[in-house]
């Protein structure tokens, strides 16, 4: 929770030796890779990328699993010399309903801060959505780290094992 009692996923990462501009360009690269809608702002001390997006959350399992809502969120990345920070916050849930064509679609005009999910949908559903959101935040944080580190992903070549069918 932050000081306003709102859920937030927040990290500060030290990157010794990297300039504010380098980290800023990598943050923009990360925003592109994450598919965010974003705007970027430069000031003397801090360069920032302000992004937003949605994730879909599910209920049920196996063949009974279906999309049951979407959570809108904001994702901000700020860079300084030798460090950056990011936070994922302002989570707002919109439930899905089944339309006449049997597609799950968002209910227009319903916006529920996730802090109020339990009071609107009960603890079981709220916990399930929060679990999915938590996993999403962790995964997104890991991706930001990879994008900003510019880590090279080296694919290990696997040789196909051959067998000699003449010898048995």
């Amino acid at each position: 929770m932050d000081e306003s009692n709102k859920y937030v996923y927040y990290k500060i990462v030290d990157k010794p030796g990297l300039s504010i501009d380098t980290l800023y360009q990598r943050a923009i690269y990360a925003a592109d890779k994450l598919g965010l809608q974003y705007e970027n702002v430069e000031s003397d001390a801090v360069h920032s990328v302000f992004g937003k997006d949605k994730l879909i959350v599910y209920s049920g399992s196996s063949i009974m699993r279906k999309a049951s809502g979407e959570i809108a969120y904001k994702l901000d990345m700020e860079t300084k010399d030798s460090k950056y920070r990011y936070k994922i916050y302002d989570f707002v849930f919109t439930p899905y309903k089944r339309d006449r064509f049997n597609n799950m679609v968002a209910e227009p005009g319903i916006f529920i801060p996730i802090e109020e999910l339990a009071s609107k949908y009960g603890k079981k559903d709220a916990d399930a959505y929060l679990d999915q959101l938590g996993l999403f935040c962790k995964t997104t944080g890991d991706k930001i780290k990879v994008y900003i580190d510019k880590a090279q992903v080296i694919k290990k070549l696997e040789t196909t094992k051959k067998v000699d069918t003449d010898k048995w």
Partner: peptide, 23 residues
């Protein structure tokens, strides 16, 4: 100063997560 409290409880799940813009 902001509190830097992470949502550790978030990490417990092994649920399905699909990002809207990703494939």
């Amino acid at each position: 100063m902001k509190k830097k409290l992470l949502l550790l409880s978030f990490f417990a799940a092994s649920a399905f997560v699909v990002k809207a813009q990703e494939t």
